[in-house]
Computed example of a mutant assay.
Amino acid sequence: MSRVRIRRAAAAAVAALTLAALPSAAYAAAAPAAASGARHHQRAETYSRITLQGAVNVRDLGGHRTWTGGQVRHGLVYRSDALGKLTDADVTTVSGLGLTKVIDFRIPMEVQYDGADRLPAGLSATARPVSDLGLYGTLVGAIGSGDPVIQEQMLGGGRAEAYMRAIYRTFVTDAGNRAQFAATLRELADGRQGPVLYHCTSGKDRTGWMSYVLLRALAVPEDTAERDYLASNTFRAAYDASVRAGLKQSGLMQNPDLLIPLQEVRQDYLDSATAQMEADYGSFYGYLTQGLGLDLRTLAQLQSRLVR
């Protein structure tokens, strides 16, 4: 096989991490048995999950209680993984959400290989790339090598975990990343804006940090915001396991468990970002006002629009 074909095969395998390269039968196997639009309840919080065939981590952020006795409104903010492989039925379900904006945090390489979002007529995604520190390209190279020694050298021995912690720190340190998150929060605060959905590739890291920041800005308790972040593991577990099995069966990876640290969200990843936030800005409030440049009026508008 030529180098070009190997690289394309590897990219397809990486894309499979986000539903982009598995047959529709795999969607059914990985998705929980529930009707489209069903609500999923977990622990003390209510996670309003939108169940689709072509994406596994789509949620309405509404329902969380705040310190002030309020509740985050339903139907205004949605978070998800990539939407490039939605079925016709999925598109109909998404159409019913009444979205006026979709924000895509993926970098161009991800969009190139995974595909652009498939959305209802009249709706197109706004590209707002947040750096993955080259993770997608690293995965293409590691999987494309087909060499278990190289894969172990690239991802084993705690290296994958260290990579993830470094990515999370850049959510705070990188000015470009901060600008993308800040722009999203300003739009969510705008009373003229209708329902918004934002997403990345797996809907767990860039999207997870955005959701964590938003919930805390709305006075949702920190531990509740953390559980919302960690809930991606529940929603993605079955699908991610099927991806690892497929990679092993294909012969691309002898030890696909090397990918688990990249597929999961973990408390210590989130802690890397919050520790950086405190080191750079002293507090969460400092991150909002100094790091993201949000003024008190914008923060008040977020509360007024998104909390009842």
Rank of each mutant, 00 (worst) to 15 (best):
E226I: 15
L288F: 10
A12F: 01
T126A: 07
Q42A: 13
G246F: 00
A189V: 04
V58G: 00
Y212L: 04
D228A: 08
R65I: 02
V140K: 02
R206F: 05
V149Y: 07
A28D: 14
I143T: 00
D240I: 04
G141A: 11
A89W: 05
S95M: 09
Q303K: 11
R128Q: 04
V4T: 12
A10Y: 04
R308C: 12
T51Q: 08
R186E: 15
E187V: 09
Y229I: 12
G115Y: 01
M109L: 12
W209S: 02
L139S: 05
G286C: 02
V94R: 11
R49M: 07
P221Y: 15
H74G: 10
A279N: 14
G134W: 02
P129E: 06
A26C: 11
H199F: 09
T274L: 12
A15I: 07
V58D: 00
V243K: 01
V56K: 06
V130R: 10
T234R: 14
A166M: 00
A10I: 00
Q263G: 02
Q53W: 12
A237W: 06
P108I: 09
L19E: 11
G146Y: 09
F284E: 03
Q180I: 05
R305M: 12
P108L: 11
N177E: 07
R65W: 11
T224D: 13
T207P: 01
S304D: 13
P261C: 04
S202I: 07
D147F: 09
L230R: 07
D295F: 01
R118M: 06
P195N: 10
R186Q: 15
Y163R: 13
L214P: 00
A160W: 06
T87S: 12
R79P: 02
S145C: 01
G246C: 05
